[in-house]
Amino acid sequence: MREELINAMVELEDDLVLNLVKDQLEKRDPLEIFEDLKTSLIKIGDLFEAEEYFLSDLIIAADTFKEASKLMEPYFTKKQDEVKGKILIGTVEGDMHDIGKNIIITLLRSEGFEVVDLGIDVSATEFLEAVKINHPNIVALSGLLTSSKEPMKKTIELIKKEYKDTEKLIFIVGGVAINEDWIKDIGANYGTTNAINGLKIINDAIKNF
């Protein structure tokens, strides 16, 4: 039963996944089903890294995960009503791309994070104001363009300078061009080139924080 669900998810059989979830919710612990879907997502992320899956596959996976989570919601309100953490997210100034950002928002919300989405082309000042109002655990900065590096750096520097609880904040950056040097140069804690890996990083970061 578990294997069938995991396989269907990894094979991106969206209709089959939803039917299996509906069926299995009557027979299994919903948290276990949820864990199986997360396991599938990790496998999908690995397939992406291995150059076998593509962005369109990640989008299908994220959407299926979102729909499955909706089916599970009534069960979770009884068993899992605790918010795992608060995340403030936005695409940095000068960048209008939102694919990666939207995928990770779907995944994070499905997994019990509270997400404040600031949208696209968000200035450093707008990020800072939102941090002061929302007091998040994590600030996630997204950007597809190479020119996003400077606005990311500017945003992190401004928040670190102006926000009093900055030691309690984790900065994560996401975008296809991001690498280790990029993360180090701009003063972020973590970085990711894809949303599914980003979800894993955020889960680990919240646990270890």
């Binding site: 969206d14 962005l55 369109s56 989008i59 299908i60 959407d63 791309h97 939102d98 694919i99 939207n102 995928i103």
Partner: peptide, 11 residues
């Protein structure tokens, strides 16, 4: 159309 919607609606 928006890239993410465009890619999702292919399916």
């Amino acid at each position: 159309y928006g890239y993410d919607k465009f890619l999702l609606d292919m399916r």
